[in-house]
Simulated assay, not measured.
Amino acid sequence: MTASSQTLPGALPPEQPSVPRPVPLSQGLAAKASEAAAAAVIDATMAENGGATGEELAAAEQRAGILFDAAHVEAAVSAAREQAHAEDQAELAQLREELVAARRELGLLAPAYRARQAVLRLCEGRRGDDLLLVSAVAVAAESGATALDGLPMRLTWLRSADVPEATDRVQRTVVHCESSYGGRAELVVEGDDRMALASMLDSSIIRDIHAPCPHEQTCGSDIAPPDEFGWFHLDVGGLGEGLRWYCSPGCVNAAMLRAGRELAAIDEAADDMIAVDQAEHPGEYAERPAEETAVDARCARCGCTEDAACEGGCAWVPNTQMIDLCSACATPAELDAASWKTSGGES
Rank of each mutant, 00 (worst) to 15 (best):
M1E: 03
S4W: 01
A11S: 14
P14F: 14
P20S: 07
P24H: 08
S26I: 06
A31L: 04
S34H: 09
D43R: 04
T45I: 01
G51M: 12
G51K: 08
G54N: 13
E55N: 03
E56V: 05
A60C: 01
E61P: 01
G65A: 02
D69P: 00
D69R: 07
V77C: 10
A79M: 14
A80C: 05
E87K: 13
A93N: 02
L95I: 02
E97M: 01
A101M: 08
E105L: 09
L106G: 07
L108R: 14
A110L: 06
Y113S: 12
Y113N: 05
G128E: 06
L131H: 09
V139S: 11
T146G: 09
D149L: 03
D149T: 04
D149G: 04
R159H: 07
D162Y: 01
E178T: 04
E178W: 00
Y181E: 00
Y181Q: 00
E190D: 12
A196H: 08
L197A: 03
S199H: 09
L201W: 11
R207F: 13
P212A: 15
H215F: 05
T218E: 15
C219F: 08
G220V: 14
P226E: 12
F232D: 13
G240C: 08
A254R: 03
A259T: 14
G260E: 06
A270G: 06
D277Y: 11
Q278A: 11
P289F: 03
E292L: 13
A294W: 15
D296S: 09
D296I: 05
D296K: 08
A297D: 15
E306K: 11
E306N: 07
E306T: 14
A308D: 11
A308P: 09
V317M: 11
N319P: 05
Q321N: 12
S327I: 05
A337Q: 06
A338E: 04
W340C: 04
G344H: 11
